[in-house]
Amino acid sequence: MSTSNRTKLLLDIGTFLAFLVTMDPHFSGLAIHEWLSIALAGTIVVHLLLNWEWIVNVTKRLFIKTTNGTRFNYVLNWLLFIDGILIMLSGIMISESAMPALGILLPVNSAWRSLHDVSANLALIIMGLHLAMHWNWIVTTFKRVFLGSPGKPAVTGIEQEA
């Protein structure tokens, strides 16, 4: 088991759990919801850095030689990234805890609240698809990291196709 895969899995599990908590401000409270979301932005940057080679490789051969599954995965990842930015931006614009605590007071625009709700619901659907596309990798790596089960190197369904 490579350290890289172990790091990726642990980071992804942590990010996913934090994502779930931020999806329910009733459960966590508004302050935790906002600060945890800001912290999530940092983990997403690390997630992208850990998968940088894949991003660069697929970007290079996106229109030349790649499978439809990989293309779909690539577009889906971009949608998730853009939606994540929208969630973060709209969240900052309607912030009632984190931004005021930093001394930043932003103008009120009700459109940001609707956008925050819509983009958060959209993120759930895209995240569901994202997880389903990488399910093989998640299960195989989880078994190898936590159960010590040997086996062939973990690859995603998309990588298998490519």
Binding site: M23, D24, H26, G128, L129
Partner: peptide, 29 residues
């Protein structure tokens, strides 16, 4: 907001998130 104070109530939003993600993932699968 009606959820300003919050604090470890029933995690309905978490369950909703899991259900929606499962449906999307299930359809894809």
């Amino acid at each position: 907001r009606d959820h300003d104070e919050g604090g470890l109530g029933f995690p309905g939003g978490v369950i909703k998130a899991l259900v929606l993600m499962s449906i999307a993932g299930g359809i894809y699968s």
